[in-house]
Amino acid sequence: MTETDIVQQCQQGDIAAFAALYDVYHQPMLRVARDILHNKQDAEDAVHITFVKLFHSIRHFRFQSKFKCYLFRILSRACYDILKKTKKQRTENIDHISQHIEQHTDLKIQLEEAIKNLPERMRLCFVLFAVEDFKLTEIAEITEMTLGGVKSTLYQARVRLRHYMEI
C-alpha cells in the first residue's frame, strides 16, 4: 500500500490508516519536536496534537505538496504553540551559552545544548536538514520560507553551532 493510499484512507476517517502513518513518521516527529522543545513530554504532546489536527484537516489535503511536508508543517506549528504556552523561548546570552556548553565534555550533549540555544526557526531548519535529512526544498515548504532563506538560515545555524561548540 502506498503512502497516497494510506492518506486517502485517513481522509475517510480510518483510524488504522492513522496508525500506519504514525508507524512511519512518529520517530522523526518525536526527534524534531524534542529538539525544538527540549523536553520529551512536550515532544509527545506536540506529536499528539499534530495527529489530532491532522485528523481534522487531512480531508482538505489535495496532494499538491508532499504529505511529509504537510505533516511536519502541522508539527512545527504545534511545537511553536507549545513554546508560546510554556514560554520556553531563548533568553540566555551567547557568553552564558558558551560557558554552559563547555561544561559538557560529551560532544553529543554539547550539540544538544547548542541546538537548544538557537533561535526557533534556525533550530527547526537545522534539525530537519542535519538530523532528519530533509531536502532544502522540503524545509522551505515546511517552514514557509524561500529556498534562499532556508540556505541562509542553515548557514547561520552552522556558523553559530561551530562557534558555540568550538569544534
Partner: peptide, 16 residues
C-alpha cells in the same frame, strides 16, 4: 562535516 556527522548521530529512536 564534523558538526553534521555529530548531528546525524542524534538520529536515534525515542521510546514512547
Amino acid at each position: 562535516r564534523k558538526l553534521l556527522d555529530l548531528a546525524r548521530s542524534r538520529k536515534t529512536n525515542i521510546t514512547a
